[in-house]
Amino acid sequence: MTRTGRAWTTRTARDRSETAVRGRLLDAAEEVFARLGYGSATVAGIAAGAGLSRAGFYVYFASKEEVFAVLAARTRDDFLAAQDVPGVDTADVRAVARASTAAFVTAYAAHLPLLRLVEQQAQHDAELAAVWEEIQERPVRRAARWIRRLRDAGTIRPVAEPLAVARAVGGMSVQFARLVAADPAAHEGAVRDVTAMYLHLLGVEPTP
């Protein structure tokens, strides 16, 4: 069946790229994937969740696979953003450690169901495998660069090599984020405990 002449097919890629409707579709897709899993999620279900028809979905995405790939990339970007700490004095090691830990735990807990699906799908999709690798590695390597700069400046005395410390903190953050996903009330305690261990690994005394 030809779709020639339909108004929604004439929109440009730029028109489709960043709109409120596109964001609504992505949010609906994340909810559907998290609730039903990858195999059971459908275009119709995602469209309905966003208050659109199937035709409305196809204005923005070509397939279920495409919207999932975009979701995975958005989650990756959330984790990279979690390494930024706007409004925090970058010279204050304790403040940076706490702020970055809180952001990471919050992002991981919020996206946990989708992250599990990304990890599964990455096993047989090269594009998703690359995204999953970035989700795991880029925050760790970015933290390692920060730790190395502080160590070289004599500001901190980490108990191990910067990359090893960053991996240890990342692993702890993931485990505590899973607890927070199951019990959101545990968030403050999780951030406090991971930050305390982070500072210990950096060789920094916690705030009195």
Rank of each mutant, 00 (worst) to 15 (best):
G56T: 01
E30L: 06
A103E: 08
S40Y: 11
Y60Q: 12
Q120A: 11
A41H: 13
A50E: 12
P184Y: 00
F104P: 05
A81R: 14
R6H: 08
Q123Y: 04
V32T: 13
A182N: 08
G45D: 07
Q136N: 09
Q120M: 07
V194D: 00
S17D: 15
E137L: 11
G87W: 08
M1R: 10
R11W: 09
Q175G: 11
L36G: 08
G189P: 08
F176K: 06
A122K: 00
D78W: 03
T42R: 06
I156R: 01
R167D: 12
D15P: 07
M197E: 04
G49H: 13
T195A: 01
E161H: 15
E137D: 15
D183T: 01
R98D: 15
T12P: 01
G39F: 10
R76S: 05
T10L: 13
V88G: 03
A144R: 11
F104G: 10
E66A: 00
R6P: 04
V96L: 05
G189T: 10
V59C: 09
Q121A: 01
R54D: 12
L199M: 03
G45W: 10
M197G: 00
D183M: 00
E188F: 08
V85M: 05
A97P: 09
A186L: 14
T195W: 10
G170C: 00
V85F: 09
D27Y: 04
D193P: 04
M172Q: 14
T4R: 14
A55V: 02
P158E: 04
V180A: 08
L179C: 03
S40R: 14
L115M: 06
I147S: 04
A99R: 13
A186Q: 13
E134I: 00
R192N: 11
A126H: 09
F33I: 03
Q120F: 03
V159N: 01
I135L: 15
S63N: 08
R148C: 12
E188W: 03
E205S: 12
R142H: 13
L71P: 13
A182D: 10
F61H: 02
T207Y: 09
V180C: 05
D125H: 01
V118Q: 06
V131H: 04
L36T: 10
A20W: 05
A99F: 08
P184I: 06
V180S: 04
L128Q: 08
W132L: 07
G49V: 01
A28Y: 11
A91I: 02
A34W: 06
Q120R: 13
A73R: 10
T12I: 03
P113Y: 00
G51C: 11
L80D: 13
I46F: 02
A99H: 06
P162M: 01
R3D: 12
S63P: 11
V96P: 13
E127F: 05
Y108S: 04
T42K: 06
M172G: 07
Q175T: 12
V194R: 01
V88A: 04
P206D: 02
A126I: 10
G39Q: 13
E137N: 14
A13I: 00
A72M: 02
A41N: 11
G56W: 06
A160C: 02
V204R: 07
V169R: 14
R22E: 15
S100R: 15
V165W: 07
A91V: 06
F104Y: 12
A91L: 11
A153P: 05
A44W: 00
A82K: 10
Q83K: 11
R98F: 09
G23Q: 15
A107S: 12
T42Y: 07
I46E: 08
R22I: 07
G37E: 07
R11A: 14
D84S: 10
